[in-house]
Design a protein around this nucleic acid. Structure first.
Length: 694
RNA sequence: GGGCGCAUAGCUCAACGGUAGAGCACUUGCUUUACACGCAAGGGGUUCUAGGUUCGAAUCCUAGUGCGCCCACCA
């Protein structure tokens, strides 16, 4: 055996080891050597496809480590372990990135036109889209790269079309004019889940709507007061609504009031959606520019008067005084006008949350728009039942509530987007593409060849586990569940791991804009991939969010050095004559105890992995290796020279490398390659997992 | 307005009904022939507060305080 360096240096080994793995082809289950008796059962995970805009962040790194631990341990346990990787075209996100790039060259997407622009996006995708794939390899992810997919590759386009047609023919997809959340910058509609909220120090303006004739209302006035945060929308008001039980307005319902500025008569209506306790209990109803008001307007058959256009400017309907003005300019003019006319009752400070686009932060304008919708009631029920009847379990289980609460209060899904980058809507003319999540929802089976009945689909669907971040439980997980049931008649996975969120050291979110982000690639460069994986998993105990610090990664680095040197010692002591097998009936008490400890460790590590307690599994492995094997046994074995002890020493090392491999694959494989004898499995990656039944 | 999570050693976290542990940091020794990325020994906690249940509580219950996150069509 060649001399090993005194200290483990990850940079010397990681790339070579990964190349060795890729060359062997064992990431592809069909290439695995001789199946165990009884054949191999599949164990399948679909990688949540990262956006082609992205590079690996700490959440990705943690999630990749979790999935790799599962896949590697199952592969060693004799499963056809398949981890399917891929990337997501990420509609709006990618379009925005490319638009920004073009802007630097002084070009807008409209300058280019649709076709040219999409060409640019594909170019961009080819150039940068696989950044994260390279980073996953750096991290040691044992994905089957021969099955790499993209949510807009040729086969995937077919899947999306088939899904759309299926829903359409079933009557679940319809087109309609609705008030939708509209981003005036991205020029597209957005679903509820694509909105973010921002606190704003706003004002609540109390406005007087005069009552015609000499009728009197509460407090003996000839006007009623409505409160609003958006006075400019009054130009589109079609009613004033009160609660049906509100005694204050009893006599007025069914009569009318005079809309300020335009002097239109609009009706007073009663609707149960109104909260009597808020403000004056009377609400202006603007059907075209508020989603709730739109719903009220449908119940009362009110017209839809659009006064704001998709660029966020006032339309001709708003009147000559306002046409062409931006919303905020119109607001100022309206307030000034109301004040001049004595119709501004009062204004008060009002802290308030406003919806903004999750991609660009622009304030959302609700506007009426022709859109495609997917009916959700029946599909949502299917997704709910899958969890309620325990065909799908979340880990930790409390996340099921997030999922069920959303599905129980769901609205139809607006699936059309007015952007250029995405799947074209099959029945549509030129304009729209599908929400990016419409294609992601098909991921667990579209990646396996659906709608074709492929052997892969037959063999590998359904998958076993999905591991993901919590913020896409509804955006993605719920949609995969009902899609799987709808198209495959079977839930796409049995277990959903909702992994911890990696927070900055001070407990804030990691984000580029806050400057709190940590780049996992920097950590890999500094400490190696194994140590980085070790640190992340070491911290992820009990499903709690983790405040990230480098200390556990340093602990990982030291631990790897410990493994390295223990192996160096055992290798030197046994002179290359290392056995993988424990002595059958040890006569020496210390050896028997060592073997028993190794079996016990194997058992608890395996059980912890199966329970998705990866942090606990790693702590057990660490404690076993360092404090039992090294501190006690190796120290004792130094004084011995008998065959039984030598055999125990070698076999315990081999078992330890196997148990540690899913967590720290590079160093353990490098050592295996160094100490292995010809009759050993050619790679630790496919070595048999220690027996846990003893 | 609802919901969820967390509060344990200087720091980051385990333990989840039976005498409080780890990693990092700290102290004191060690060129012990695998490892100073190491070895040995050690210091440090009335487990947020106040009640309660129990023979026994960090662990269960109630209330409070402080952080963090999510959902919602109070205009």
């Amino acid at each position: 055996m060649q001399e090993l360096a005194k200290a483990y240096n990850p940079q010397e080994h990681e790339d070579a080891i990964y190349a060795l793995w890729e060359k062997s082809g064992f990431f592809t289950p069909e290439n695995l050597p001789k199946p165990p008796a009884g054949g191999r059962k599949p164990f399948v995970i679909m990688l949540p496809p990262p956006n082609v805009t992205g590079s690996l962040h700490m959440g990705h790194a943690l999630n990749a480590a979790i999935q790799d631990i599962l896949i590697r341990s199952k592969r060693m346990r004799g499963y056809d372990a398949l981890w399917v990787p891929g990337t997501d075209h990420a509609g709006i996100a990618t379009q925005n990135v490319v638009e920004k790039m073009l802007k630097k060259q002084g070009v807008s997407r409209h300058d280019l036109g649709r076709e040219k622009f999409i060409e640019k996006v594909w170019e961009w995708k080819e150039q940068y889209g696989n950044t994260i794939i390279g980073q996953l390899k750096k991290l040691g992810a044992s994905c089957d790269w021969s099955r790499l997919r993209f949510t807009m590759d040729a086969g995937y386009v077919k899947a999306v079309e088939a899904a759309f047609r299926h829903y359409y023919e079933k009557g679940l997809i319809y087109k309609g004019k609705r008030v939708v959340s509209w981003c005036t910058r991205c020029q597209t509609s957005l679903s509820d889940l694509e909105l973010e909220y921002k606190d704003e120090e706003s004002k609540l303006w109390h406005i007087r709507y005069m009552i015609p004739g000499r009728e009197r209302t509460i407090a003996d006035r000839d006007y009623i007061v409505v409160a609003t945060t958006r006075p400019e929308t009054l130009l589109g008001d079609e009613a004033v609504a009160v609660h049906p039980d509100d005694e204050r307005y009893k006599g007025l319902v069914g009569k009318s009031v005079i809309l300020p500025i335009h002097q239109r008569e609009i009706p007073m209506i009663a609707d149960a959606a109104i909260d009597m306790a808020f403000g004056t209990g009377a609400v202006k109803v603007t059907p075209a520019h508020d989603i709730t008001d739109f719903e009220i307007s449908r119940r009362h058959d009110l017209p839809l008067r659009q006064i704001i256009d998709e660029r966020g400017k006032m339309t001709a309907e708003a009147g000559k005084l306002f046409e062409g003005a931006k919303v905020l300019e119109a607001r100022e003019r309206i307030i000034a006008e109301l004040e001049a006319q004595g119709l501004l009752d009062k204004e008060e400070a009002y802290p308030h949350r406003i919806a903004v686009c999750y991609r660009c932060g622009t304030v959302i304008e609700p506007i009426p728009s022709e859109q495609w919708f997917l009916k959700m009631d029946v599909l949502a029920q299917k997704a709910l039942l899958a969890v309620k009847e325990k065909r799908i379990t979340f880990h930790p289980q409390r996340w099921e509530k997030i999922y069920t609460d959303w599905l129980e209060n769901i609205r139809d899904w607006c699936i059309s987007r007015q952007i250029w980058w995405g799947h074209k809507i099959p029945l549509d003319g030129e304009t729209d593409v599908l929400d990016t999540w419409f294609s992601s929802a098909l991921w667990p089976f579209a990646t396996l060849g659906w709608p074709k009945k492929t052997p892969d689909l037959e063999k590998y669907y359904p998958t076993q586990v999905l591991s993901t971040a919590r913020d896409i439980i509804n955006l993605w997980v719920a949609r995969m569940v009902y899609s799987g049931i709808e198209f495959m008649d079977r839930e796409p996975f049995a277990d959903v791991i909702v992994h911890a969120t990696v927070l900055a050291k001070d407990g804030r979110r990691m984000s580029k804009s806050l400057g709190t982000g940590v780049d996992p690639m920097d950590l890999i460069a500094k400490y190696g991939a194994d140590a980085t994986r070790f640190g992340l998993i070491w911290m992820s105990l009990g499903g709690q969010d983790m405040k990230f610090g480098e200390e556990p990664i340093i602990a990982g680095k030291k631990f790897l050095n410990k493994i390295w040197n223990a192996s160096r010692f055992v290798g030197g002591r046994l002179g290359g004559d290392i056995s993988c097998a424990f002595p059958e009936s040890p006569r020496i008490v210390e050896n028997a105890a060592m073997i028993e400890s190794a079996h016990a460790a194997a058992k608890t590590i395996t059980e912890s992995i199966d329970a998705y307690d990866f942090g606990q599994a790693l702590h057990i492995a660490y404690d076993f290796f360092w404090h039992t094997f090294c501190d006690k046994y190796i120290e004792w074995a130094k004084t011995r020279d008998d065959e039984e002890t030598k055999q125990t020493l070698g076999a315990t090392l081999a078992a330890s490398l196997k148990l540690l491999h899913p967590f720290v694959p590079f160093a353990t494989e490098a050592l295996w390659q160094h100490i292995r004898k010809d009759d050993w499995p050619q790679q630790l990656m496919i070595a048999e997992w220690p027996n846990i039944h003893e």
